[in-house]
Amino acid sequence: MAEIQENNSGKGKEGKGKQKKMTIRVDFTPMVDMNMLLITFFMLCTSLSKPQTMEISMPTKDTQEDMQTKVAASRAITLLLGEDDKVYYYLGEPNYQDYTSLKETTYTPDGLRAVLLARNANVVARINELKKKKLDGEITEEEFKTQSTEIKKDENAPVVSIKGTDESTYKNLIDALDEMQICNISRYAIVPIAEGDLWLIKNLKSAGDLGKNSEMAQN
Rank of each mutant, 00 (worst) to 15 (best):
Met1Gly: 06
Glu3Ile: 12
Glu3Lys: 13
Ile4Gly: 01
Glu6Phe: 09
Asn7His: 14
Ser9Trp: 02
Gly10Tyr: 09
Gly10Glu: 00
Gly12Leu: 04
Lys13Phe: 14
Glu14Ile: 07
Lys16Ala: 02
Lys16Arg: 15
Lys18Val: 15
Lys18Cys: 01
Lys18Asp: 00
Lys20Gly: 09
Lys20Phe: 06
Lys21Ser: 11
Met22Cys: 03
Met22Asn: 10
Met22His: 13
Phe28Ile: 06
Pro30Met: 01
Val32Thr: 02
Asn35Trp: 01
Asn35His: 06
Asn35Thr: 05
Asn35Leu: 14
Leu37His: 01
Ile39Arg: 08
Phe41Val: 05
Met43Cys: 12
Met43Asp: 15
Cys45Leu: 15
Cys45Lys: 11
Thr46Asp: 07
Thr46Ala: 11
Ser47Phe: 12
Ser49Gln: 14
Ser49Cys: 04
Lys50Thr: 14
Pro51Arg: 06
Pro51Met: 05
Thr53Ser: 13
Met54Ser: 10
Met54Gln: 09
Met54His: 07
Met54Pro: 04
Ile56Ala: 08
Ile56Tyr: 04
Ser57Ala: 11
Ser57Glu: 13
Ser57Gly: 02
Thr60Trp: 10
Thr60Lys: 09
Lys61Tyr: 01
Thr63Trp: 05
Glu65Trp: 05
Ala72Met: 10
Ala73Leu: 05
Arg75Thr: 04
Ala76Ser: 12
Ile77Val: 15
Ile77Tyr: 01
Ile77Cys: 06
Thr78Trp: 03
Asp84Tyr: 11
Lys86Met: 03
Tyr88Phe: 15
Tyr89Phe: 15
Tyr90Glu: 00
Leu91Tyr: 12
Gly92Asp: 07
Asn95Lys: 11
Tyr96Arg: 00
Asp98Leu: 00
Asp98Glu: 07
Tyr99Lys: 02
Ser101Gln: 03
Leu102Phe: 10
Leu102Cys: 02
Glu104Ala: 06
Glu104Ile: 04
Thr105Gly: 07
Thr108Cys: 02
Pro109Asn: 04
Asp110Gln: 14
Gly111Val: 09
Leu112Cys: 11
Arg113Asp: 04
Arg113Lys: 14
Ala114Gln: 14
Val115His: 03
Leu116Thr: 03
Ala118Gly: 06
Ala118Glu: 14
Ala118Met: 13
Arg119Asp: 08
Asn120Pro: 11
Ala121Met: 12
Ala125Gly: 05
Arg126Met: 08
Arg126Gln: 15
Ile127Met: 03
Glu129Phe: 01
Lys131Tyr: 01
Glu138Arg: 09
Glu142Gln: 12
Lys145Phe: 05
Thr146Trp: 01
Thr149Cys: 12
Ile151Asn: 10
Ile151Ser: 02
Lys152Ala: 14
Lys152Arg: 14
Glu155Leu: 11
Glu155Asn: 02
Glu155Tyr: 07
Asn156Gly: 15
Thr165Tyr: 06
Asp166Lys: 14
Ser168Met: 10
Thr169Glu: 11
Thr169Leu: 08
Thr169Trp: 09
Thr169Val: 05
Tyr170Lys: 13
Lys171Pro: 07
Asn172Gln: 14
Leu173Cys: 09
Asp175Ala: 12
Gln181His: 07
Asn184Val: 04
Arg187Phe: 06
Arg187His: 12
Arg187Pro: 05
Val191Phe: 03
Pro192Thr: 00
Ile193Gln: 03
Glu195Asn: 15
Leu198Val: 07
Trp199His: 09
Trp199Glu: 05
Leu200Trp: 11
Ser206His: 04
Leu210Arg: 07
Lys212His: 10
Ser214Tyr: 07
Met216Val: 15
Ala217Arg: 10
